[in-house]
């Protein structure tokens, strides 16, 4: 598969925006200390948390005892702020310098940064991939209607080749599962539908290069008006990210970098448009970052 075709496949198969540069990203990390890897990848945890924890629950209505089934694809995206594009690297242990510089993060400028040390020695820091937004898309399936409860799952796995010419593409794995339960079924006088839910996800890139898990707890309220069903969600997100790479400094030793857990409040406002068996939705999310999501589902 040539690179363009692989790229198109990556788009069609709805994977992570930054992930295709996996091999180069791993090579970039190899020359950096753990602390600088955290700085270089600092835009990732919040962006991943914001996107991965979106577009999961889009209605407060779950039938009490009638089969519900839906298959769809949802795309979630965040736009990075300018302040995410630079970080201040710490001087590596072997390098001696009094100069403080700023270097590009993984989403920043493609131009390298240089830090001057004793006697004119130089330490280079890699450029970023010049990315303005992170887009994650995932297929999702839901099945429910059993005592006002539905199961929701996401799953995706694809290996876009590991030959040299395709080395900047890698393997992506996403698995998520959760449950949502109707609360309004117990309160017949409630003027809208209300449900609570929880969702666990695991997302990996490459052979353990990036491993992340997310937990999303949520209460969703919605009201159906003919074709339209606006909804509001209030929830809590937690996201853990671990990066593993081979260090060039320690004879290929594997370095594991754990980022601080991202925990934050999550507010969602959106609407579904029901056109018979076809269901479209768009939503706004205020969480670790501001994000938007759109999606298409088919089912009943």
């Amino acid at each position: 598969m040539n690179r363009s075709l692989a790229a198109a496949a990556a788009l069609i198969l709805a994977t992570l925006a930054v992930a295709p540069a996996q091999a180069q990203l791993e090579a970039n990390l190899g020359a950096m200390t753990e602390e600088n890897v955290k700085g270089y990848l600092s835009p990732f945890p919040t962006a991943l948390s914001a996107t991965m924890n979106s577009a999961i629950f889009r209605s407060g209505y779950i039938a009490k005892d009638k089969l519900q089934f839906q298959v769809g694809v949802h795309a979630m995206a965040v736009t990075f702020d300018d302040e995410d594009r630079l970080y201040t690297p710490t001087t590596p242990p072997d390098f001696s310098s009094d100069q403080s510089i700023q270097a590009p993060t993984v989403i920043g400028s493609t131009q390298y940064a240089e830090q001057f040390g004793d006697g004119g020695a130089v330490q280079y820091y890699p450029g970023g991939f010049d990315i303005q937004q992170l887009t994650v898309a995932a297929p999702q399936i839901s099945i429910g209607g059993f005592m006002g409860t539905q199961l929701v799952a996401r799953w995706f796995a694809y290996d876009i080749g590991d030959e040299a010419e395709d080395a900047d593409f890698g393997e992506f794995k996403l698995f998520g599962i959760g449950v949502q339960h109707s609360i309004s079924q117990y309160v017949p006088t409630m003027p809208f539908d209300l449900a609570i839910g929880g969702f666990y996800q695991n997302f990996e890139i490459g052979e353990d290069l990036l491993d992340s898990t997310g937990l999303h707890l949520n209460a969703t309220a919605s009201k159906r008006f003919s074709l339209l069903e606006p909804y509001i969600g209030i929830g809590y997100d937690q996201y853990d990210l671990t990066v593993r790479y081979d260090s060039e400094e320690f004879d290929g030793d594997e370095i594991e970098v754990e980022f601080d857990t991202e925990s934050n409040f999550h507010f969602t406002a959106g609407s579904q448009l029901h056109l018979g068996p076809v269901h479209l939705h768009g939503e706004y999310n205020a969480a670790a970052e501001t994000s938007f999501a759109v999606g298409l589902g088919v089912g009943m």
Partner: peptide, 8 residues
């Protein structure tokens, strides 16, 4: 993109 890769 043309990305400046840094290696040691």
């Amino acid at each position: 993109r043309l990305v400046d890769l840094a290696l040691n």
